[in-house]
Nucleic acid binder design. Structure first.
Length: 192
DNA sequence: AGCACGATGCTCT
DNA sequence: GAGCATCGTGCTT
């Protein structure tokens, strides 16, 4: 499989969020290759989007979102959790896709052990499963250098995709309800 | 199966 | 000082 090039991310965030479904999130951890199929994403788009961290403008925290596409934006929340995003669109425009869930397909035993058998179907669950934290904030997802990237994967038909409102936002409409959450209906993937 | 709650510390007002 | 792009537990239906 092939690592997504920067151009993949240099597109409208809703397109990228949809395209990421079925792709493979890969992490090299202690020399082992761990991976999962991306099954849920959300789009966060610009300073106007009151659900997006960039509503606060350019700050130390949001700086990465203003940078080039294809980098990882990783933030800390609720005092204990890390969440992984892929930065999208042109440099200078703050937007990203939150990776909300994966279905483990490589290094499954290691992932299960790290998760104590609890699965990786949540934004903070998958970062914990793959050993992703703030130390990787800003790294390039378009090269294998940092040990974290996204590869081409399964082709997903429209029929298998469900849209809905983003989760956990307490913000004014329309931002609270715009259908910028993309989910893959339950599908069986071969183990390689 | 679903809801309420506490944990825990950073970010921005 | 308030709120948070969450998770796991424990209790209720």
């Amino acid at each position: 499989m092939k690592i997504n090039p920067r151009d993949f991310y240099a597109h409208p965030t809703l397109i990228v969020a949809r395209q990421l479904l079925g792709m493979r999130l890969v992490r090299i951890l202690d020399g082992a290759r761990l991976a999962g199929i991306i099954t849920e994403t959300e789009a966060y788009i610009g300073e106007q989007d009151l659900g997006c961290h960039a509503r606060a403008g350019r700050t130390k925290r949001t700086e990465v979102m203003y940078g080039p596409p294809g980098r990882a934006y990783i933030y800390f929340t609720y005092g204990m959790h890390w969440c992984l995003n892929a930065v999208t669109e042109a440099e200078g425009f703050p937007a990203a896709v939150l990776i909300r869930a994966i279905q483990p397909v490589e290094g499954v035993a290691i992932i299960a052990a790290r998760r104590q058998g609890r699965g990786a179907d949540g934004p903070a669950k998958l970062t914990q499963a793959l050993g992703i934290d703030g130390g990787l904030n800003g790294i390039d997802l378009c090269t294998p250098e940092a040990g974290l990237w996204i590869e081409t994967g399964e082709s997903i038909p429209e029929k298998s995709v469900t849209l809905g409102p983003r989760v956990g936002l307490n913000v004014p409409e329309p931002w609270k309800s715009v259908p910028w959450r993309f989910r893959l209906r339950r599908v069986h993937f071969p183990a390689q």
